[in-house]
Amino acid sequence: MVLWLTGLSGAGKSTIAQAVHALAKPRMPGLVLIDGDVIRALFGAGLGYKEADRYQQIGRIQRLAGMLSGQDIRVIVAALYCHPDLMAWNRANLPGYFEVYVDAPLNLVRQRDVKGLYARALAGETSDVVGVDIPWHAPQAPDLIIDTANETPAQSARRLMQAVPWLAELVSTGGRNDG
């Protein structure tokens, strides 16, 4: 079972994924969180940020999520790059795949800009930024859209848990899993 969150940098993917993980982990000890930034750091600086590198990065995450899910481990992924071919692969190959579009308008993520990414890109100090000089491909048919401009991360996490079948039971039982 794979829960995949995607959205622009600064949309709230990691924050929401971490909140869901924190709420669910006590009742699902085998739950794993895969964050794109963490995977990039884990595998070193071998990949850049060009579109081809981003495609390869998502491929790594897909294979890792698939391997874990194949061992009956439930997986939450928070990853930026969202190409239609990659999302189609996810649907065809990841068991129990549930796709979440963490939507935030470009002007809002530029305002948040916790990493200073957009400011550096707009100042010409960096390139290869999704939503600036790399096209953003919003998911074509997500299972859930979360609008982070209009709800808090805690509200988003709870709504997401209610929508995902294998997490919904935890919400309805207040976190108890008596099975």
Rank of each mutant, 00 (worst) to 15 (best):
D37Q: 08
D128L: 06
G46A: 14
S14G: 12
A17N: 10
L167I: 13
R159Q: 15
R40P: 04
G48P: 03
V129Q: 08
G48K: 09
I34G: 02
A104S: 11
L47Y: 01
Y97H: 13
G96L: 10
A138R: 13
F43S: 12
M28K: 10
G179P: 01
A52L: 02
D113L: 08
V102N: 00
P139G: 12
P139H: 08
N150V: 09
A104C: 08
G48R: 05
D37Y: 05
L80D: 06
L167G: 02
E151T: 12
P139I: 13
L144I: 06
A149G: 14
R158W: 03
R63D: 04
L144V: 02
V132K: 00
E125D: 15
D103R: 03
A78K: 04
V132Y: 01
R120F: 01
A88H: 09
R40L: 07
R159C: 11
V171D: 08
T148G: 13
A154V: 11
V75I: 11
I73L: 00
V109Q: 07
M28I: 14
A92H: 08
D85E: 06
A65I: 10
Q111D: 13
S127I: 15
I73F: 04
V129W: 08
R60C: 10
Q57W: 01
G44Y: 06
S172H: 09
Q155A: 14
L170P: 07
Q111N: 15
Q111L: 15
K25R: 02
V102S: 07
T126N: 02
G46R: 12
A11D: 04
A157L: 03
R74G: 05
S127A: 14
L68Q: 03
Y97N: 09
V130R: 00
K50L: 10
A138M: 03
M67G: 03
A149S: 15
D133M: 15
Q111G: 12
A141H: 10
A168S: 12
L122F: 00
R63N: 10
A163C: 05
